[in-house]
Amino acid sequence: MAGAKKTTTKKPTTKKTTAKKPATKTTSKQIIMDVQGIEKNYGKVEVLTGIDFKVYAGETVAIVGANGAGKTTLSEIVAKVKEPSKGKIQYFFEEDGEESIGKGEISSNIGIQFQDSAYPDFYKVKDLVNFVINAAGLEITKEELEELYETFDLTKLKKEVAKGLSGGQQQRLNILLAIVNNPKLLILDEVGTGLDVESRTKIKSYIKSYAEEHSATILLVSHNSDEVMELAERVIVIHNGKIFNDLPLKEIIKE
């Protein structure tokens, strides 16, 4: 699949990690993110109460749990949209393993798709896409961009006002905006919401191809078991603001 190209390309390595149970495989692969003691409070309400885990380059990790468990809050903190009340996250997007610092450097390596997005008034689909491309200083050919529009079934909607799109159309646009800058870390929040079966299948296929071709790391927040089983290789279960389980998908299925 074609996608946008950054002026400088950095390639991470590959996968696998651990959490509650001891690792069954070596962890010599490059860490891309180290989450340490993350807590988040909204007034007296404790949403996250101490989250610790590592993510390795090339992994696809699903974050699952009941409504209100703190999944989306955690993904927003990872994406630097929100700050934690306590704890920190270290990012390692450089090929040499050096820690990435500064919000700008970190944000440029992260793509995030939220279930709900607020678009500026009167912005057309193509305006939003071009804004992201220009803001990130991306190099992308007309052919590559048209292929992305086609993949997400947005070719005929480029001149439509984004706010006027249906829920499913907005979801497809959200995913395109998250992926157009070829992020090292892609965060997807309920990626199949509002999409018909054909669209979900097509987008899941694109995500899998994108991850393989770009050695991208994916954090997938989802309630959809089929989505998790098809895309993820590791599952982190959040319960009452804490990690209840962190296991390879095949072990989660056994349990």
Rank of each mutant, 00 (worst) to 15 (best):
T201M: 04
K126W: 07
I187M: 09
T141Q: 04
D127C: 07
K159N: 15
V191S: 07
Y119I: 13
A216N: 14
K163D: 14
K163R: 15
D127F: 12
A118P: 07
K208V: 07
L188P: 08
A136I: 05
V180W: 00
N174D: 11
N174C: 13
I140Q: 03
G192E: 09
V197N: 01
S199T: 10
K202L: 10
E144S: 14
L157Q: 04
L177K: 05
I203G: 02
G168T: 06
Y119T: 12
I207F: 05
L185A: 00
K202Y: 09
E147Q: 15
I140A: 08
Y119R: 14
E139V: 14
E160S: 12
E143G: 02
K202G: 12
V132G: 04
P120W: 03
E150V: 12
E139Y: 03
S215K: 15
E147L: 14
A118W: 08
N182D: 11
T141F: 00
L138M: 14
L165G: 06
L176W: 01
E190G: 06
I133R: 01
G194Q: 12
Q170T: 06
I175S: 05
G137R: 03
V132A: 06
R172M: 01
V180K: 03
A135L: 13
K204G: 11
I175W: 05
S215P: 06
V129H: 02
G194Y: 13
P183L: 01
V161K: 14
P120K: 02
G194P: 02
L185Q: 00
K163T: 15
K142S: 08
G194H: 15
Q171R: 15
T201F: 04
E146I: 04
A162N: 08
K156S: 09
E190R: 04
Q169D: 05
T201W: 02
L165Q: 05
H214F: 12
F122I: 05
K156V: 09
Q171K: 13
K184W: 05
A216F: 13
D116C: 09
S199F: 07
V197M: 06
E190W: 03
K124M: 14
E150H: 14
T217F: 06
D196H: 01
Y210S: 07
E198Q: 10
P183D: 00
E212A: 15
I218T: 13
A118E: 12
T151H: 07
I207G: 07
K163H: 13
L145E: 15
R200N: 03
K184D: 07
A178T: 09
K158H: 05
K184R: 14
G164V: 02
G194D: 13
Q115H: 01
K126V: 08
I187F: 04
N134C: 07
Q169M: 14
Q169N: 13
V129L: 02
I187A: 04
G194W: 12
G137E: 11
N182S: 15
